[in-house]
């Protein structure tokens, strides 16, 4: 049984004349892990900042369930925003006092061998990310919002980061919303994939069903125009077609070699498709 934890309704947000969010709506369930993808400027980060209370939408509403008081929302921004003149220790103390954290868990800090007297601004991007995560995890958040930061950290720290997130999901049944471009490292995390374009979600699928609904056809010749696709590209000796939505009826009518594809490629296809659309407009 699912439990609704956030309900976002008809968010609208403009910066100048540019629409950033355009009637964006979404519901998030307790414990689910969601990845939001989309091309640059599609509104992903803004949407996440709205959830984190860092940006107020011009219109629309964001309702959190009673289980989610403000101190149970964890947010790691793409800027890794912290009071960077603070030392690690002072940063921890401040965060603990604001979020009423009695026993701060230093495990991650120790694993990273961070000097507590070091200023936050002197930490490397990876250290700072993990430090920020350790602050957020100490809140035991009901919702964890992570903006595009995974790509800035090295593989070792990335693994540590993801382990910690997965552990949180297991331990606290936390809802995790990540904004990401690259899926190769996090393919196992998302249960739900959202693709955003022009401030609206153009794809909202469970990961498991997404693989069923999107297939890839690799062919030297062109395939029928009647086969629905979100993206196609011409490579040196062959063409790639990303067929969506796919069903068995389609296979019977157009018996091409429909292949399963990985999440990373699926997202790339959706994003690529939007670039092509934009080019054609």
């Amino acid at each position: 049984m699912t439990e609704k934890i956030v309900e976002v309704e008809n968010l609208k947000l403009n910066i100048g004349r540019k629409k950033i969010l355009d009637n964006t709506s979404l519901e998030l369930q307790k414990g689910e892990s969601v990845v939001i993808a989309g091309r640059n400027g599609s509104g992903k980060t803004t949407f996440l900042k709205c959830l984190a209370n860092v940006i107020f939408p011009d219109q629309g509403s964001i309702k959190f369930s009673e289980e989610v008081p403000p101190e149970k929302i964890g947010y790691i921004s793409d800027q890794l925003s912290l009071f960077e003149n603070y030392t690690v220790k002072k940063g921890i103390d401040f965060h603990a006092s604001v979020f009423h954290i009695e026993d701060f868990d230093y495990t991650l800090i120790k694993e990273l061998k961070l000097d507590l007297n070091q200023k936050i601004k002197n930490l490397s991007a990876g250290e700072r990310t993990l430090f920020h995560l350790s602050l957020i995890l100490a809140q035991e958040p009901e919702i964890l919002l992570i903006d595009e930061i995974i790509h800035v950290i090295d593989p070792y720290l990335r693994e540590k980061f993801l382990e910690a997130v997965i552990d949180l999901m297991d331990r606290c049944q936390a809802t995790v919303v990540m904004v990401n471009h690259t899926f190769s490292e996090i393919e196992k995390i998302p249960e739900r994939v959202l693709v955003m374009e022009k401030g609206q979600f153009i794809l909202d699928e469970k990961s498991e069903t997404l693989g069923e609904k999107l297939k890839k056809v690799v062919s030297e010749a062109e395939i029928s125009d009647e086969v629905p696709r979100i993206f196609q590209r011409e490579l040196s000796y062959f063409r790639e077609y990303f067929v969506y939505p796919f069903n068995e009826e389609l296979r019977k009518k157009f018996p091409y070699d429909y292949k399963n594809t990985r999440l990373n490629e699926i997202i790339k296809a959706f994003v690529g498709g939007q670039y092509v659309k934009k080019g054609n407009q």
Partner: peptide, 16 residues
């Protein structure tokens, strides 16, 4: 001070 140390986003995300 928050602007100076790039902490504005963090400040606004605090539960206040």
């Amino acid at each position: 001070l928050e602007h100076g140390q790039r902490g504005m986003e963090y400040l606004l995300s605090l539960p206040y």
